[in-house]
Design a protein around this nucleic acid. Sequence first.
DNA 1: ACTATTTGGTTCGATATCGTATTAAATAAA
DNA 2: TTTATTTAATACGATATCGAACCAAATAGT
Lengths: 166, 166
Amino acid sequence: MVRICRQARTGHWNIRLSQADEIGKLVFGFFNEVGIINQLATRQLESKLPGGLLISHFGVINHLMRLGDGRTPLQIATAHQVPKTTMTHTLAGLKKAGLIEFAPNPSDARSKCVMLTEAGRAFHAQAIGAIVPEFQSLLSDIPAEEFAAALPFLQRLRAYMDTARD
Amino acid sequence: MVRICRQARTGHWNIRLSQADEIGKLVFGFFNEVGIINQLATRQLESKLPGGLLISHFGVINHLMRLGDGRTPLQIATAHQVPKTTMTHTLAGLKKAGLIEFAPNPSDARSKCVMLTEAGRAFHAQAIGAIVPEFQSLLSDIPAEEFAAALPFLQRLRAYMDTARD
DNA sequence: ACTATTTGGTTCGATATCGTATTAAATAAA
DNA sequence: TTTATTTAATACGATATCGAACCAAATAGT
């Protein structure tokens, strides 16, 4: 697909413009699809979340359920690739909703540990319960194998982009 | 991967819970990667955009460049899967930045046609010029073929999710 | 023709996101 | 030890997103 060709007159090696254009369209189209799928999935999920909470909230709760609570705000922020100031705000919302509590961080007085409350765990169960039927309906039309096949590339791409940002 | 099994006692066909759980994790992981890739790509692109404009702005300009201007706000909003009220706001920003103009819609007095200005086209060229090097660096680590291989599934998934939302 | 409903767009208010600047604790340097 | 730098978190302000309510034009129903 990537064709390098040599300009006869100058002797320089270049990507032919039309080819580069094609590739640009390809990568661009890829990220475009990713963006729209994300948009659609976000809306779909958010419409099922109890109590008018948003993906940002669910994301944090889900993170704490999967990896265990007691993490610091900064850890959660970097895991979700959002600025820490955004996480401060999201956590404030979760606290107000009674889904998390803060505990002092024994190893650093500046920091905190984010703890799930019982209501937080219940919220997670409820949200998962609401989402599972959506997944089942999705999987009845698009087989799980295809998701499994697509996943490794996304993981690799994510890992690359993650390290490449400076 | 999807294993349907029959309960000997009742005779009912069911997805075994552990399997369903695995599948949930799979689909969930998929959308999670999509979300983070989108996040990273957005940040990356946004940091390169001239004039402090955002993806939402670039998205509209790019849309008009690709498909031709003269589209209505609502058409653009649905194409981008955002509420029309969001598009009103985005278009106001673009107008204030001098990148678009509004023309009356000859076939509907309530509506408008969104037209690109010269500055709008220049902005697009400049943005593309800033993005292309990013793509090239990306493609030097992840070959274009892999993007090409991943794209069809994403397109199919998007199309499905698009029609399935009600 | 006349009313009812739908549709394109904006306004408004509530909340989210994020960059900049700030505070306080931790760590490094002297 | 004292000072300088880094680091965790927050405060604040500017802008984005989005739902509800609204208006006016278009279309449907009668």
